[in-house]
Amino acid sequence: MNSTLIVARREFRSNFDSPIGYVVIALSLLGVGAFFFRDYWTINRATIYPLFTWLPWAFTFFVIPAITMRLFSEEKRTGTIELLITMPVRDREVVLGKYLATLALVGVLLALTLTYPLLIGRLGNLDPYPIAAGYLGMLMHASAGIAIGLFFSSVTENQIIAFMLTAVVLLGLFSIDYLGAAVGGTLGDIFAFVSFQRRLAPFGRGLIDLRHVVYFLSVTVFFLMLTTRQLESRKWK
């Protein structure tokens, strides 16, 4: 097994060796489920669109900051990073392993939300394409968010600070669209361009636009590279 997968496997398991994995999944399912079914009864139609309205907010405020905050902060605080990095493993493999493990955790959470469409599907005809596209969008959003959270976890030993920084930046990127609409002009266009919400909305309606996929993947790669540089910076400081 290559080093990235070895790091990823340990990291993924560690989510379930402590309450963090269970707590995040349980609270997310409870919160998103409550809002989803409230909206579902209001709409009174067989759709899971409300799921793709509320999940991004849960990801932004809670899920992603909570599951990324300890990734490097904890290792730096306890010193385990020194033993890990001095094994025959590259810095980028450590970063990628932690990223994949966290994405897999979000995958578990998303898989559990599949119970909603399965349930709704029994009540009426569900169009599978918007569901598949919606889930792809959520994965893209999570991917970019995790890379951002991973970066902030690598800059501080304090998990609370890492949580706050990630939540603030994700909230900014998600809701900057509102600001873009208010200011208008070129600045408004720039805000709309970087907005997660603007790019996520079409997925929920069943539209997979390659430009949006590339955008989320670009944010992911950019922040993973930034995290690797941050990890390497211990050498120069």
Partner: peptide
């Protein structure tokens, strides 16, 4: 790194 065995101060390990 392949050729050395290293134990840092205070033996930092994964508690879980």
């Amino acid at each position: 790194r392949k050729r050395i065995g290293y134990l840092p101060q205070r033996a930092p390990l994964y508690p879980e």
